[in-house]
Amino acid sequence: MTLLEFRDLWVTYTGSRGRIPAVRGVDLSVGAGRIVGIAGESGCGKSTLAMAVLRLLPKSAEVSGEILLDGEDLLRMGWGRLRAVRWTGASIVFQGAMHSLNAVQRIGRQVAEPILVHERTTPAKAAARAEALLERVGLPSSRMRSYPHELSGGQRQRVMIAMALACDPELIIADEATTALDVMVQAQVLQLMTGLVKERGVGLVMISHDLSVLSAVCDTAVVMYAGRIVERGPAREVFADARHPYSAALGAAFPVIGDPASRGRPGGLAGDPPDPARLPEGCSFRPRCAVAVERCGEESPELLRVPGIGTVRSSACFVAQEGESVVFG
Protein backbone atom coordinates (compact mmCIF):
# COMPACT_ATOMS: atom_id res chain seq x y z
CA MET A 1 0.00 0.00 0.00
CA THR A 2 1.40 3.37 -0.98
CA LEU A 3 1.45 5.87 1.85
CA LEU A 4 3.28 8.77 0.32
CA GLU A 5 3.77 9.59 -3.29
CA PHE A 6 5.53 12.51 -4.94
CA ARG A 7 4.38 13.10 -8.49
CA ASP A 8 6.55 15.40 -10.58
CA LEU A 9 7.31 17.63 -7.61
CA TRP A 10 8.98 20.97 -8.28
CA VAL A 11 10.04 23.42 -5.59
CA THR A 12 11.37 26.82 -6.61
CA TYR A 13 12.64 29.48 -4.23
CA THR A 14 12.32 33.10 -5.22
CA GLY A 15 14.97 35.24 -3.61
CA SER A 16 17.25 38.17 -4.27
CA ARG A 17 19.17 36.07 -6.81
CA GLY A 18 16.08 35.28 -8.83
CA ARG A 19 14.27 31.98 -9.08
CA ILE A 20 16.23 29.03 -7.78
CA PRO A 21 14.94 25.51 -8.40
CA ALA A 22 15.62 23.27 -5.39
CA VAL A 23 13.62 20.20 -6.40
CA ARG A 24 13.14 19.48 -10.09
CA GLY A 25 10.56 16.91 -10.98
CA VAL A 26 10.83 14.22 -8.33
CA ASP A 27 8.71 11.06 -8.51
CA LEU A 28 8.90 8.79 -5.49
CA SER A 29 6.63 6.56 -3.47
CA VAL A 30 6.85 5.10 0.00
CA GLY A 31 4.84 2.08 1.10
CA ALA A 32 3.67 1.04 4.56
CA GLY A 33 6.26 -0.86 6.53
CA ARG A 34 9.00 0.19 4.12
CA ILE A 35 12.09 2.28 4.68
CA VAL A 36 13.14 4.57 1.87
CA GLY A 37 16.48 6.33 2.05
CA ILE A 38 17.29 9.58 0.31
CA ALA A 39 20.99 10.38 -0.09
CA GLY A 40 22.85 13.34 -1.48
CA GLU A 41 25.15 16.25 -0.67
CA SER A 42 23.86 19.21 1.28
CA GLY A 43 21.93 21.51 -1.02
CA CYS A 44 20.72 18.74 -3.30
CA GLY A 45 17.11 19.30 -2.27
CA LYS A 46 16.59 16.39 0.09
CA SER A 47 15.62 18.49 3.10
CA THR A 48 13.37 20.63 0.92
CA LEU A 49 11.62 17.43 -0.06
CA ALA A 50 11.08 16.54 3.59
CA MET A 51 9.72 19.95 4.47
CA ALA A 52 7.46 19.94 1.42
CA VAL A 53 5.57 16.92 2.73
CA LEU A 54 3.95 18.89 5.54
CA ARG A 55 4.08 22.17 3.60
CA LEU A 56 6.56 23.66 6.02
CA LEU A 57 8.53 25.53 3.38
CA PRO A 58 8.86 29.31 3.67
CA LYS A 59 6.46 31.49 1.76
CA SER A 60 9.12 32.24 -0.85
CA ALA A 61 8.98 28.61 -2.02
CA GLU A 62 6.72 27.77 -4.90
CA VAL A 63 5.62 24.12 -4.99
CA SER A 64 4.04 22.38 -7.96
CA GLY A 65 3.18 18.79 -8.77
CA GLU A 66 1.42 16.48 -6.35
CA ILE A 67 2.21 15.13 -2.91
CA LEU A 68 -0.23 12.35 -2.16
CA LEU A 69 -0.52 11.25 1.42
CA ASP A 70 -2.84 8.27 1.59
CA GLY A 71 -4.13 9.30 -1.82
CA GLU A 72 -4.98 12.85 -0.76
CA ASP A 73 -3.08 15.72 -2.37
CA LEU A 74 -1.42 17.79 0.36
CA LEU A 75 -0.82 20.73 -1.93
CA ARG A 76 -4.55 21.21 -2.51
CA MET A 77 -5.64 20.92 1.13
CA GLY A 78 -7.22 23.81 3.00
CA TRP A 79 -5.35 25.09 6.06
CA GLY A 80 -7.68 23.34 8.49
CA ARG A 81 -7.33 19.96 6.81
CA LEU A 82 -3.57 20.46 6.48
CA ARG A 83 -3.21 21.15 10.21
CA ALA A 84 -5.24 18.04 10.95
CA VAL A 85 -2.96 15.93 8.72
CA ARG A 86 0.24 17.38 10.17
CA TRP A 87 1.69 14.98 12.71
CA THR A 88 -1.28 12.55 12.48
CA GLY A 89 -0.72 11.58 8.85
CA ALA A 90 3.00 12.19 8.80
CA SER A 91 5.50 13.44 11.34
CA ILE A 92 9.09 14.55 11.11
CA VAL A 93 12.16 13.81 13.21
CA PHE A 94 14.11 16.98 12.59
CA GLN A 95 17.83 17.33 12.30
CA GLY A 96 19.68 19.16 15.03
CA ALA A 97 17.39 18.26 17.89
CA MET A 98 18.80 20.94 20.17
CA HIS A 99 17.25 23.74 18.19
CA SER A 100 14.22 21.78 17.14
CA LEU A 101 13.06 21.50 20.73
CA ASN A 102 11.68 24.48 22.60
CA ALA A 103 14.42 25.42 25.05
CA VAL A 104 12.13 26.80 27.73
CA GLN A 105 9.45 24.11 27.78
CA ARG A 106 9.68 20.85 29.64
CA ILE A 107 10.11 17.70 27.56
CA GLY A 108 6.86 16.16 28.75
CA ARG A 109 4.81 19.09 27.63
CA GLN A 110 6.44 19.17 24.24
CA VAL A 111 5.82 15.48 23.64
CA ALA A 112 2.23 15.73 24.85
CA GLU A 113 1.48 18.85 22.85
CA PRO A 114 0.54 17.22 19.53
CA ILE A 115 -1.73 14.79 21.38
CA LEU A 116 -3.59 17.68 22.93
CA VAL A 117 -3.77 19.48 19.61
CA HIS A 118 -5.17 16.58 17.64
CA GLU A 119 -7.23 14.55 20.07
CA ARG A 120 -9.99 15.24 22.52
CA THR A 121 -8.28 14.24 25.69
CA THR A 122 -7.32 15.60 29.06
CA PRO A 123 -3.87 16.97 29.81
CA ALA A 124 -3.39 14.19 32.36
CA LYS A 125 -4.09 11.47 29.82
CA ALA A 126 -1.86 13.16 27.25
CA ALA A 127 0.92 13.34 29.81
CA ALA A 128 0.52 9.66 30.60
CA ARG A 129 0.82 8.85 26.90
CA ALA A 130 3.87 11.07 26.59
CA GLU A 131 5.44 9.21 29.47
CA ALA A 132 4.75 5.89 27.77
CA LEU A 133 6.28 7.21 24.55
CA LEU A 134 9.42 8.33 26.35
CA GLU A 135 9.71 4.90 27.90
CA ARG A 136 9.26 3.33 24.49
CA VAL A 137 12.34 5.21 23.24
CA GLY A 138 14.27 4.27 26.36
CA LEU A 139 14.01 7.41 28.46
CA PRO A 140 12.93 7.21 32.10
CA SER A 141 9.73 9.01 33.04
CA SER A 142 11.74 11.40 35.22
CA ARG A 143 12.78 13.01 31.94
CA MET A 144 9.27 14.39 31.56
CA ARG A 145 10.24 17.32 33.75
CA SER A 146 13.61 17.99 32.13
CA TYR A 147 14.47 20.82 29.84
CA PRO A 148 16.16 20.07 26.51
CA HIS A 149 19.54 21.40 27.59
CA GLU A 150 19.63 18.88 30.42
CA LEU A 151 19.69 16.01 27.95
CA SER A 152 22.51 14.67 25.83
CA GLY A 153 22.38 14.74 22.05
CA GLY A 154 21.21 11.14 21.80
CA GLN A 155 18.54 11.66 24.42
CA ARG A 156 17.25 14.71 22.62
CA GLN A 157 17.08 12.82 19.36
CA ARG A 158 15.05 10.13 21.12
CA VAL A 159 12.72 12.77 22.49
CA MET A 160 12.20 13.89 18.91
CA ILE A 161 11.36 10.32 17.94
CA ALA A 162 8.96 9.94 20.85
CA MET A 163 7.35 13.19 19.80
CA ALA A 164 7.07 12.01 16.21
CA LEU A 165 5.23 8.90 17.41
CA ALA A 166 2.80 10.84 19.57
CA CYS A 167 -0.17 10.79 17.20
CA ASP A 168 0.44 7.36 15.66
CA PRO A 169 1.35 8.67 12.21
CA GLU A 170 1.45 6.31 9.28
CA LEU A 171 4.58 7.93 7.95
CA ILE A 172 7.69 9.25 9.67
CA ILE A 173 10.30 11.37 7.96
CA ALA A 174 13.71 11.38 9.60
CA ASP A 175 15.71 14.32 8.33
CA GLU A 176 19.38 13.74 9.17
CA ALA A 177 18.10 12.30 12.42
CA THR A 178 21.34 10.54 13.28
CA THR A 179 23.86 12.86 11.70
CA ALA A 180 24.97 14.77 14.77
CA LEU A 181 25.33 11.64 16.91
CA ASP A 182 28.37 9.54 17.49
CA VAL A 183 28.48 6.01 16.19
CA MET A 184 27.26 4.14 19.28
CA VAL A 185 24.28 6.41 19.83
CA GLN A 186 23.59 6.42 16.12
CA ALA A 187 23.30 2.65 16.15
CA GLN A 188 20.85 2.76 19.05
CA VAL A 189 18.67 5.36 17.40
CA LEU A 190 18.68 3.50 14.09
CA GLN A 191 17.72 0.29 15.84
CA LEU A 192 14.90 2.09 17.56
CA MET A 193 13.54 3.46 14.32
CA THR A 194 13.77 0.24 12.34
CA GLY A 195 12.13 -1.53 15.26
CA LEU A 196 9.22 0.88 15.05
CA VAL A 197 8.76 0.22 11.36
CA LYS A 198 8.47 -3.51 12.00
CA GLU A 199 6.33 -3.13 15.08
CA ARG A 200 3.83 -0.56 13.84
CA GLY A 201 4.01 -0.94 10.10
CA VAL A 202 4.68 2.72 9.52
CA GLY A 203 6.49 4.02 6.47
CA LEU A 204 9.85 5.65 7.12
CA VAL A 205 11.75 8.09 4.95
CA MET A 206 15.36 8.41 6.04
CA ILE A 207 17.24 11.41 4.75
CA SER A 208 20.97 11.36 5.20
CA HIS A 209 24.23 12.05 3.48
CA ASP A 210 25.69 9.01 5.23
CA LEU A 211 25.47 6.09 2.84
CA SER A 212 26.57 3.49 5.35
CA VAL A 213 23.56 4.36 7.51
CA LEU A 214 21.17 4.19 4.59
CA SER A 215 22.51 0.96 3.17
CA ALA A 216 22.26 -0.65 6.61
CA VAL A 217 18.61 0.10 7.29
CA CYS A 218 16.77 1.03 4.09
CA ASP A 219 14.82 -1.17 1.69
CA THR A 220 14.94 1.24 -1.17
CA ALA A 221 17.39 4.05 -1.70
CA VAL A 222 17.35 7.03 -3.99
CA VAL A 223 20.27 9.33 -4.69
CA MET A 224 19.56 12.97 -5.36
CA TYR A 225 21.73 15.43 -7.22
CA ALA A 226 20.87 19.05 -7.96
CA GLY A 227 17.19 18.60 -7.18
CA ARG A 228 16.71 15.39 -9.15
CA ILE A 229 16.73 11.70 -8.43
CA VAL A 230 19.68 10.28 -10.32
CA GLU A 231 19.49 6.70 -9.12
CA ARG A 232 16.97 4.40 -7.49
CA GLY A 233 17.11 0.78 -6.44
CA PRO A 234 17.43 -1.62 -3.51
CA ALA A 235 19.56 0.13 -0.92
CA ARG A 236 22.40 -2.38 -0.65
CA GLU A 237 22.80 -2.65 -4.38
CA VAL A 238 22.75 1.08 -4.99
CA PHE A 239 25.70 1.58 -2.73
CA ALA A 240 27.59 -1.60 -3.42
CA ASP A 241 27.14 -1.49 -7.17
CA ALA A 242 26.31 2.08 -8.21
CA ARG A 243 24.75 2.70 -11.58
CA HIS A 244 25.29 6.45 -11.63
CA PRO A 245 28.73 8.08 -11.47
CA TYR A 246 27.56 10.39 -8.71
CA SER A 247 26.37 7.55 -6.45
CA ALA A 248 29.62 5.77 -7.19
CA ALA A 249 31.62 8.81 -6.10
CA LEU A 250 29.43 9.27 -3.04
CA GLY A 251 30.04 5.67 -2.06
CA ALA A 252 33.76 6.01 -2.60
CA ALA A 253 33.86 8.98 -0.26
CA PHE A 254 33.18 6.57 2.61
CA PRO A 255 35.99 4.05 2.87
CA VAL A 256 34.89 0.53 3.62
CA ILE A 257 36.44 -0.54 6.88
CA GLY A 258 38.58 -3.62 6.46
CA ASP A 259 38.73 -3.30 2.71
CA PRO A 260 42.32 -2.43 1.78
CA ALA A 261 41.34 -1.71 -1.80
CA SER A 262 39.13 1.17 -0.75
CA ARG A 263 42.08 2.92 0.80
CA GLY A 264 43.92 3.24 -2.46
CA ARG A 265 40.88 4.35 -4.42
CA PRO A 266 40.54 8.06 -5.10
CA GLY A 267 37.96 9.17 -2.57
CA GLY A 268 35.63 12.11 -2.84
CA LEU A 269 34.59 14.09 -5.82
CA ALA A 270 36.32 16.92 -7.62
CA GLY A 271 34.58 20.27 -7.92
CA ASP A 272 31.73 21.84 -5.99
CA PRO A 273 28.02 21.07 -6.05
CA PRO A 274 26.41 23.03 -8.87
CA ASP A 275 24.94 26.47 -8.28
CA PRO A 276 21.20 25.77 -8.49
CA ALA A 277 20.65 29.21 -10.02
CA ARG A 278 22.97 28.39 -12.96
CA LEU A 279 22.72 24.72 -13.75
CA PRO A 280 24.77 23.46 -16.68
CA GLU A 281 23.19 22.44 -19.97
CA GLY A 282 22.38 18.78 -20.34
CA CYS A 283 23.16 16.49 -17.41
CA SER A 284 23.82 18.66 -14.36
CA PHE A 285 26.49 16.26 -13.12
CA ARG A 286 28.52 16.46 -16.35
CA PRO A 287 31.11 19.07 -15.15
CA ARG A 288 32.22 16.72 -12.36
CA CYS A 289 31.72 13.47 -14.21
CA ALA A 290 34.67 11.28 -15.19
CA VAL A 291 32.76 9.11 -17.64
CA ALA A 292 30.76 11.78 -19.46
CA VAL A 293 30.15 11.33 -23.17
CA GLU A 294 29.26 13.91 -25.80
CA ARG A 295 25.53 13.37 -25.44
CA CYS A 296 25.62 14.38 -21.74
CA GLY A 297 26.26 18.01 -22.68
CA GLU A 298 23.28 18.15 -25.01
CA GLU A 299 20.33 16.57 -23.28
CA SER A 300 19.37 15.80 -19.73
CA PRO A 301 19.03 12.07 -19.04
CA GLU A 302 15.74 10.71 -17.70
CA LEU A 303 15.55 8.28 -14.80
CA LEU A 304 15.23 4.97 -16.67
CA ARG A 305 15.55 1.32 -15.83
CA VAL A 306 19.04 -0.04 -16.15
CA PRO A 307 19.07 -3.20 -18.30
CA GLY A 308 20.85 -6.41 -17.59
CA ILE A 309 20.33 -6.61 -13.81
CA GLY A 310 18.02 -8.98 -12.00
CA THR A 311 16.48 -6.37 -9.71
CA VAL A 312 14.71 -3.17 -10.65
CA ARG A 313 17.34 -0.46 -10.88
CA SER A 314 16.93 2.98 -12.40
CA SER A 315 19.56 5.52 -13.28
CA ALA A 316 19.62 8.94 -14.90
CA CYS A 317 22.87 8.34 -16.73
CA PHE A 318 23.27 7.65 -20.44
CA VAL A 319 26.34 5.56 -19.81
CA ALA A 320 24.60 3.36 -17.25
CA GLN A 321 21.54 3.03 -19.44
CA GLU A 322 23.82 1.56 -22.12
CA GLY A 323 24.63 -1.09 -19.55
CA GLU A 324 28.22 0.04 -19.11
CA SER A 325 30.16 0.60 -15.90
CA VAL A 326 30.06 4.09 -14.46
CA VAL A 327 33.08 3.59 -12.22
CA PHE A 328 36.02 5.44 -13.65
CA GLY A 329 39.27 3.62 -14.14
Binding site: L56, R83, R86, S91, H99, Q105, E113, V117
Partner: peptide
Protein backbone atom coordinates in the same frame (compact mmCIF):
# COMPACT_ATOMS: atom_id res chain seq x y z
CA UNK B 1 14.15 31.57 12.27
CA UNK B 2 14.10 29.11 15.15
CA UNK B 3 13.86 25.44 14.24
CA UNK B 4 11.59 24.80 17.19
CA UNK B 5 8.97 26.96 15.50
CA UNK B 6 9.06 24.68 12.46
CA UNK B 7 8.60 21.73 14.82
CA UNK B 8 5.60 23.44 16.38
CA UNK B 9 4.09 24.15 12.96
CA UNK B 10 4.68 20.57 11.90
CA UNK B 11 2.77 19.40 14.96
CA UNK B 12 -0.30 21.06 13.50
CA UNK B 13 -0.53 24.13 15.71
CA UNK B 14 -2.27 27.20 14.40
CA UNK B 15 -0.09 30.15 13.54
CA UNK B 16 -1.18 32.14 16.57
CA UNK B 17 -0.66 29.10 18.80
CA UNK B 18 2.89 28.78 17.50
CA UNK B 19 3.46 32.41 18.37
CA UNK B 20 1.78 32.31 21.75
CA UNK B 21 3.03 28.99 23.07
CA UNK B 22 6.50 28.84 21.56
CA UNK B 23 7.82 32.09 20.10
CA UNK B 24 6.62 34.45 22.83
CA UNK B 25 7.89 32.44 25.83
CA UNK B 26 11.31 32.23 24.23
CA UNK B 27 11.29 35.89 23.25
CA UNK B 28 10.12 36.91 26.72
CA UNK B 29 13.23 35.60 28.41
Amino acid sequence: GGDYLTTARAKGLRDDEVRRRHAVPNALL
